[in-house]
Design a protein around this nucleic acid. Structure first.
Length: 474
RNA sequence: GCUCCGAUGGUGUAGCACGGCCAAGCAUUCCGGCCUUUCGAGCCGAUGACUCGGGUUCAAAUCCCGGUCGGAGCACCA
């Protein structure tokens, strides 16, 4: 159904230097589940692997024991799976510590790494002046000895580190002799206190990108400098350097994404969980009724530009609406209902399509007895002037008279305001909105017990879930 | 401050690597009209952009230089 649409434009650009298949990766840190920003890197990588064939590696980067949420190891793959991202291989960095140690030892022997026993303030000052720390010229033997001491737990946090030799005259001070390993004695959720010497991201990423055979790396421009740092690793070891591409930042307006903020909010009871619909997590967006295809289409549409941009909920919603509309059944919802009499003398019958473009789905029909009131949105009622005529959608025409309506027979006036209503016996429902507010009211009987995305006419698309509603978008 | 990146309508993009086919395409929003017993969908129409200044050239959104603005990095985080 969705596939039939003609998406003539909006294709991702070709990658450079593709020789046959590609190997790509996404590398989240396990601090929490994925949010909409992460979905971009996941989908972009997935798209290219689909196009060229090859492997898509999920590499969980958990070399900083202080920034790990154990739940994330499961939540991340779940989110990716829901997004339709096809991971062919999963790697967890904390299970590869020996690999990093072995390569480090090799590099120490070759003189590419040295052990620093100096406080970081001084080290940083020296780097700013392009001056070598005295340890830089120590022999490989001395360094290997110290490395063993480092591994044995001889040093405490901050007392020593392993440094990658680069170029002390590099114009960017942070590229000069960067830290390759540091000590962190916090317990690791997966490995406990087995290790205390952890590689920094620039070291482990380089090693893994090489060992896993990455051909292309696409990542955000925040990694531009890291790419430069990592190239020193590749050059020192004579490894083949992957193709890099850096895309610009997308700022996502009006959306709570920061893991630390969310975590704090969950803890304090402000948010109900990772899927609280006020959040920008994949789980929350799923709960509201966004479709995975919408994410994919949006990110392909917005491409891989290096300039920064703003995420457009407008466009995202429009894409999603196109996907869901065909399957969204129509129902009436009356917010803040008031009971209003129609003063009809005979029975009235309503006749409304379940989906205006799909008559085969049938109709929603209700009978309104004489003297029986209906539910009507109070706000709309208050706005109506005395004697003004409106059409109760799919039911009849009425005019306002005091606190009641007066029934009038059909007329030919096509320009009447049309307003939804609900029959007596409708269920109560609460609709939770992303801004944190809740709309409560009545939903027509035929909708009761339904789950999934529906369109509440003149109100918006809502995901129904166990007799509650979660607002999707207009 | 230093290093590095970027700049097309309200928003998101196409085009720029090989200057002319671009008095700039598409999507979305807004506005108007049609259709319609939804403020959804559909149809028609309208408004709206190449950051600025120089240069090269017969010709520049596309190449060069400078300014401006925006962003990223300057961690023993990723």
């Amino acid at each position: 159904m969705i596939r039939e649409k003609k998406d003539e434009k909006h294709e991702l650009p070709e990658l450079e230097n593709v020789a046959g298949k590609v190997v790509m990766r996404m590398a989240p840190s396990p601090s929490g589940p994925l949010h909409i920003g992460h979905s971009r890197m996941a989908i972009l990588n997935d798209e290219y692997v689909r196009r060229y064939g090859g492997e898509l590696i999920l590499r969980i980067e958990d070399t900083n024991p202080e920034n790990i949420d154990i739940e994330a190891y499961d939540l991340i793959p779940q989110d990716l799976n829901w997004l339709g991202v096809h991971v062919t291989k999963k790697v967890i960095q904390s299970s590869r510590m020996d690999i990093y140690y072995n390569i480090a030892r090799e590099m120490i022997r070759k003189g590419f790494l040295y052990i620093l026993e100096k406080d970081q303030e001084l080290f940083r000052e020296l780097k700013l002046k392009s001056i070598a720390a005295e340890e830089r010229s120590y022999s490989p033997e001395t360094n290997e000895e110290k490395f063993d001491r480092l591994l044995s737990g001889y040093y405490d946090e901050g007392e020593a580190a392993v440094v990658m030799k680069t170029d002390l005259n590099h114009p960017n001070p942070s590229v000069r002799d960067w830290i390759a390993f540091r000590i962190n004695t916090s317990p690791h959720p997966l490995t406990g206190s087995k290790y205390s010497l952890y590689p920094t991201m620039n070291f482990s990423v380089s090693v893994d990108d090489h060992l896993l055979g990455l051909t292309h790396v696409i990542r955000g421009i925040d990694h531009l400098v890291n790419t430069e740092k990592q190239k020193y690793m590749f050059e020192a070891n004579k490894w083949k350097i992957p193709e890099y591409f850096h895309y610009g930042f997308i700022s996502i307006p009006d959306t709570i994404l920061k893991t630390s903020v969310i975590k704090q909010g969950i803890k304090s009871g402000k948010y109900s969980g990772w899927d609280d619909i006020r959040l920008g997590t994949i789980m929350a967006l799923k709960k509201r009724g966004y479709r995975p295809e919408a994410f994919r289409k949006y990110w392909i549409n917005s491409g891989m530009r290096e300039s920064n941009a703003t995420f457009s909920w407008e466009i995202f919603n429009s894409i999603n609406r196109e996907i869901i509309d065909y399957d969204a059944k129509r129902f009436f919802f009356v917010k803040d209902p008031v009971e209003i009499k129609l003063n009809n003398t005979g029975k009235l019958k309503s006749h409304a399509a379940i989906h205006p473009e799909r008559p085969e789905l049938g109709y929603r029909e209700y009978e309104i007895n004489p003297d029986s009131p209906i539910y009507f949105p109070s706000e709309e009622f208050d706005k109506l002037g005395e004697n003004s005529t409106v059409r109760l959608k799919d039911l009849c025409i009425v005019f306002k008279s005091g606190n009641e309506f007066k029934y009038v027979p059909e007329n030919n006036d096509k320009k009447l305001k049309i307003i939804q209503w609900c029959p007596l016996g409708s269920d109560n429902i609460e609709i939770y909105k992303p801004d944190g507010t809740v709309d409560s009211g009545k939903i027509e009987p035929l909708a009761s017990g339904k789950n999934g995305v529906v369109q509440l006419e003149r109100y918006g698309y809502v995901n129904l879930l166990n007799n509650r509603g979660f607002y999707l978008h207009r």
